[in-house]
C-alpha cells in the first residue's frame, strides 16, 4: 500500500462523507427553504392562531409563496402577531389582501392562505395585512351550533 493509494482512498472517503452530508441537507431536509431568505416581511394580527407554527407555509391559491417566521402575543392588542416572509418574486400582492389560517386536511398542519384583494397598492416590507380570519377551532364551532340550535 503506497502513500499515494492511501491518500487517494482517504480523499474518496472524505468526499463520500461530504456528499452524504450534502444529500442529507439538500435532498432530505428543508434547507432549500432557509436558503432563499431574500424576500419581504409582512405581519398580521389574529384573534386565534390555533395550532399555527413557525415555518408553516404561506400560500396563494394553494401555491406556496413564503413561510411564517415569527409568532408572538401582542399584549396591547390582545392578539397574536404573526410575521411571515414572502419571497421577493411575489411582490404583486394588493394591500387589501386577506390572510386566513386553514388546516391542511382534517388533522393536518395549519397554514396561512392569502386571498388577493383589488387595490393598486401592494404589500411591501413591513406592511400589515389588515384583513385576517382566525383559525378554525372545532370546539368553538360546535359550541356556536349548539347555542344556535337551543335558541331557535
Amino acid at each position: 500500500m503506497t502513500t499515494r493509494t492511501i491518500e487517494i482512498a482517504v480523499g474518496i472517503f472524505v468526499a463520500l462523507g461530504l456528499a452524504g452530508l450534502f444529500m442529507l441537507a439538500m435532498q432530505v431536509s428543508n434547507i432549500s427553504e432557509y436558503r432563499n431568505t431574500d424576500g419581504y416581511t409582512v405581519h398580521a394580527y389574529f384573534n386565534n392562531i390555533g395550532g399555527l407554527k413557525v415555518r408553516a407555509p404561506v400560500t396563494v391559491s394553494g401555491v406556496r409563496v413564503g413561510r411564517v417566521t415569527a409568532i408572538r402575543y401582542d399584549p396591547e392588542r390582545y392578539q397574536a402577531r404573526v410575521e411571515m416572509t414572502i419571497s421577493a418574486n411575489h411582490d404583486y400582492l394588493p394591500a387589501d389582501t386577506q390572510a386566513s389560517i386553514y388546516t391542511a386536511g382534517l388533522l393536518g398542519e395549519q397554514y396561512i392562505a392569502l386571498e388577493p384583494g383589488g387595490e393598486d397598492d401592494v404589500l411591501v416590507h413591513g406592511s400589515e395585512i389588515y384583513y385576517t380570519q382566525s383559525a378554525f377551532v372545532l370546539e368553538e364551532i360546535i359550541g356556536r351550533i349548539m347555542v344556535n340550535m337551543t335558541t331557535h
Binding site: F13, A19, G20
Partner: peptide, 15 residues
C-alpha cells in the same frame, strides 16, 4: 473525524 462522515454516509445510503 471519521464517525460523523460515516454517519452521514450511513443515513444517505439508508434513505
Amino acid at each position: 473525524i471519521s464517525l460523523p462522515l460515516l454517519a452521514a454516509i450511513f443515513s444517505a445510503v439508508a434513505v
